[in-house]
Design a protein around this nucleic acid. Sequence first.
DNA 1: CTGATGACCATAT
DNA 2: CATATGGCCATCA
Length: 149
Amino acid sequence: MPKRPSAEAEAFYIAVYETVQRIPPGKVTTYGHIARLIDAPQNSRQVGSALKYLHDAPQAVNGNAADLNDESDWQDFFHLFNNETVPWWRVISADGKIAFRARGAMDEQGHRLQAEGVDVRNDAHSRPRIIDLREHGWFPRPEDEESDG
DNA sequence: CTGATGACCATAT
DNA sequence: CATATGGCCATCA
């Protein structure tokens, strides 16, 4: 069970997750791009930390939440954001390679991308196309956009 | 508090 | 193209 982050860090994580959720299937972007979108251009590494956090999250939280006694908010957190609801596999390094080098994780990310038609061989032969969420109108969220003028 | 670490990035060689 | 280096900043021992 991962330790609950500070309120400030949690807000950052949520911003990362909600932004990553706007990457369409079959498309990929980078850690740095996500960081810039959420107005934290210096925190690309922390974007990776946020995604790693999903990996540490309890997968069975939807079924058994016995361990989560008096922290219902904490349960809701992983109920909303987990390995299946946040497409972490669509985030790669700026050089077009998979950055997740933990045991087996690289293969899993490759498989998930392959299933969406993205070819990532982790070499220069076929670099996936990195998209900019803003250019495609996928960010910011229309509902969050302010209109002061 | 200090020092080490990490799913990063840009630049240099 | 691959490796090395400096910078970055939150997290952890």
